[in-house]
Structures are given as structure tokens and as C-alpha cells.
Simulated scan of single mutants.
Amino acid sequence: MKISVLDAPVRKNLIFVLPGLILYGAFVLGPIVAAVVISFTRWNGLSLPSFVGFGNYIELFSDSRFFTALKNNAVLMLFYCLAPLALGIVLAAIIRSIKTREQLALRTLLFMPYIMPSAVLGIIWQWLYNPAFGPINQGLKIIGLGAIALPWLGDFTFALPAVGAVAAWYYFGFCMVIFLTGLQRIDPSLFEAARVDGASPFTIFRRITLPLLLPEIRVVLLLTIIASIKSFDLVFTMTRGGPANATLVPNIYMYELGFHLNRYGYAAAVAIIGAIIIFIVNYAVHRFVRPQTEGAR
């Protein structure tokens, strides 16, 4: 009798959960499982897949273009993660110290790039970087710095930093809002007590603000690192991985393998390696970036 009494509410709840589970299985879990299976095959999208075991992965780890993409992605992480994080903390501290009306206007203005689709921003910045008529080079020539007016997206050295600078500009407003939220939950009496004790602003930031913002720092790191590993639309609209693989990233390489070369099994292996890297990074951030109260436990 007890089993039947317990089973009725469980079945009733499952009715409400089932549509979500079906959608999750069809559009999330199913494609993930399919990608894993396809990564062990050689498939051109038309003929039947042929099983090759770990052949795609073995070939991948001897693929120089793949390692070039990983190296470029590691450089982009500095622009996607560290630069927005540092700018976000500094701007959050500055904005919190000004009046409410000006604070709202500045916060809205600085957050605006993040509400725009990154693909659209990529097209806009491609025009801004244009070496012939782009406003950046034209402005440099007007102020007498025409010698450093470069073909930014066509230069082997500066193409990747140029794309990274746009990514930093895109994400710093998001980071700033997260840190402003974190600053609002910190008790103001802590700052007042530190000032009474004669602590300098830098000491207050290092000893009070930064440790208490560790939960927000962890969230920002997780989201921006994942975004950097998944980077595609911004790079694709600005450079398509060029010039000569200077801005090639794993997702662009995966796109080329699948839709240009019809090597879907090999492209799926690139996707699986990217997913594994995301899991490893997530674990590292959760493991090493923890508030002191969590570390004590």
C-alpha cells in the first residue's frame, strides 16, 4: 500500500517534468551522444559512416593546424577573461563611488556592447579596422600617427590582438555588472572600519574587496573562459580565421572541417576535445578559485 501511495504523486510529477526531459534529450543530450559516436567514425555526411575507433583523435594530436588553433585560443583567453575581469573590477569600484543618477547612466552606457549580437559587432569592427577608409586608421592619420596605421585584420602579428580587443570591449560591461552586484552585498561598515584604521584604498581593495568578491570572480572566470573556448561568431565575421591561420580557433577549424571538407567525424572529434577542455577548466576554477569559507570546509 505504501508503494502505491508514493507512486501516485511521483507519476503525477513526472507528467510535468516529461516535456522538459523530452526537449532536453532531443536537443541537448541527443546531439551530444551523436557527436561522440560520430567522432569515432569517418563520415562525409552522405555515405554510411565507417568506424575508425580512436583514429580521428590520434590524427588530431598530430595535426599542426589544430595546435595552432589551440594556441590562438589560449591567447584569446587573455582578452576574453583577464582583461574584462580587471576592467570590470576597476569600473565597478569607480561607478559605486559616484552618485546614483550618474551611476545608472554610466552603468547602462558601459553595458550596452554586451546586449548587441557579437556577430553584428564583428561586422561593425571589421569596418572600423578597414585599412583604407576605417575610422581607426583615418583618426591615426589625422593626429599625425599615420606610421602606425596598419591593416589590423590582415597583419600576421596584430590580427589576433585586434580581434581580442573587441572581445574584451564586448565582455567588460558584463563583468562590471556582476562585480557591482557583488559590491552591493558587502557590508559598508567593513570599508568604514578600514578607513578609520588608516588603511589606504589599495589596502582596502586587496584585503577586503577582492577576497569578498571571489564568488563573483569565479562566476566571471567560468563564463568568460567558456565563451573564449566556444568563440566562433566574432572571429568568423571579422577574419574567418585568417590571415594564414593567425586567428584560427578550434570552432572555426571544426566549421571548416565539417562544412568545407565534409570530414564530419574529424570535426566531431575537435568538438569533443573542446568540450573536454571546458570540463577541465571548469573543474580547475571550482577547485582553485574559492572563497575562504569554502576552502576551510
Rank of each mutant, 00 (worst) to 15 (best):
F259Q: 03
Y255N: 15
V289D: 05
F288N: 08
S231A: 15
T239K: 05
F179I: 13
A244M: 13
I217H: 04
F158C: 07
T239G: 02
M176W: 02
G182S: 12
D187W: 01
T247G: 08
T239W: 02
T247A: 05
F259T: 10
F179D: 12
G274K: 08
F232P: 10
M176P: 00
E216R: 15
G154D: 03
A194H: 12
L210H: 13
F158V: 04
A147L: 12
D197R: 11
P211K: 02
A268Y: 05
M176I: 01
L221Q: 05
L160V: 06
Q184K: 15
F174E: 03
L257H: 08
A162D: 02
F202Y: 14
V249I: 02
F232C: 05
L212Y: 06
E216G: 00
A227I: 08
M176H: 03
D197E: 15
E192D: 15
P151R: 14
P291G: 08
N245W: 10
V281F: 15
T203Y: 10
A199H: 05
A267Y: 04
V281D: 07
F236G: 10
N251G: 03
I225T: 15
Q184A: 13
F156K: 14
I272T: 10
N245S: 13
L257Y: 10
Y264W: 00
F191R: 14
R207I: 08
G258I: 03
A162P: 06
N262L: 07
I277C: 09
R195S: 13
L183Q: 09
V177L: 15
V281T: 11
D233L: 01
V220R: 09
C175F: 04
R185Q: 14
V289R: 08
G173R: 13
A165I: 15
G164K: 02
I178F: 01
I252Q: 08
G274H: 10
G265M: 00
G146W: 00
A168S: 12
V235W: 06
I229A: 03
V270F: 03
A268E: 02
P188L: 14
L180Q: 07
L213F: 04
L221N: 09
I208K: 03
V166N: 00
F236K: 12
F205Q: 08
N262P: 07
R195P: 06
A267D: 00
G241N: 11
L210T: 13
F232W: 06
I276L: 15
A162C: 01
A162T: 04
A269W: 03
G182P: 06
V285A: 07
Y266L: 01
